[in-house]
Computed example of a mutant assay.
Amino acid sequence: MKARRQSRVLDEVSHVPPSTQCLLKNFRKRTVALGSVSNDVPSTDSYNITIDDIFDYTTELYVGEGTFGDISIGDTITWPMPFVEPI
Rank of each mutant, 00 (worst) to 15 (best):
M1R: 00
K2L: 03
R4Y: 03
R5T: 02
S7W: 00
S7P: 00
R8W: 00
V9C: 00
L10T: 00
D11G: 01
V13D: 04
V13A: 07
H15C: 01
V16F: 03
P17N: 05
P17A: 11
P18I: 01
P18H: 02
S19R: 13
S19C: 04
S19L: 12
T20I: 02
Q21M: 04
K25R: 14
N26T: 10
F27K: 10
R28G: 07
R28A: 13
K29C: 05
V32I: 15
V32R: 10
V32K: 11
A33Y: 12
A33K: 08
L34T: 07
G35F: 11
S36I: 14
S36A: 13
V37W: 05
V37L: 09
S38V: 08
S38A: 13
N39D: 10
T44V: 04
D45R: 03
D45H: 08
S46C: 05
Y47E: 00
Y47D: 00
I51C: 05
I51G: 07
I51P: 10
T58C: 13
T59H: 14
T59E: 15
E60K: 15
E60V: 13
L61I: 14
Y62W: 14
Y62K: 12
G64P: 11
G64T: 12
G64F: 13
T67H: 10
F68S: 07
G69I: 02
D70L: 04
I71D: 12
S72Q: 14
D75G: 10
D75R: 07
T78P: 01
W79P: 09
W79I: 09
W79C: 08
M81T: 03
P82T: 07
P82K: 09
F83H: 13
V84G: 09
V84N: 07
P86L: 01
I87L: 15
I87W: 09
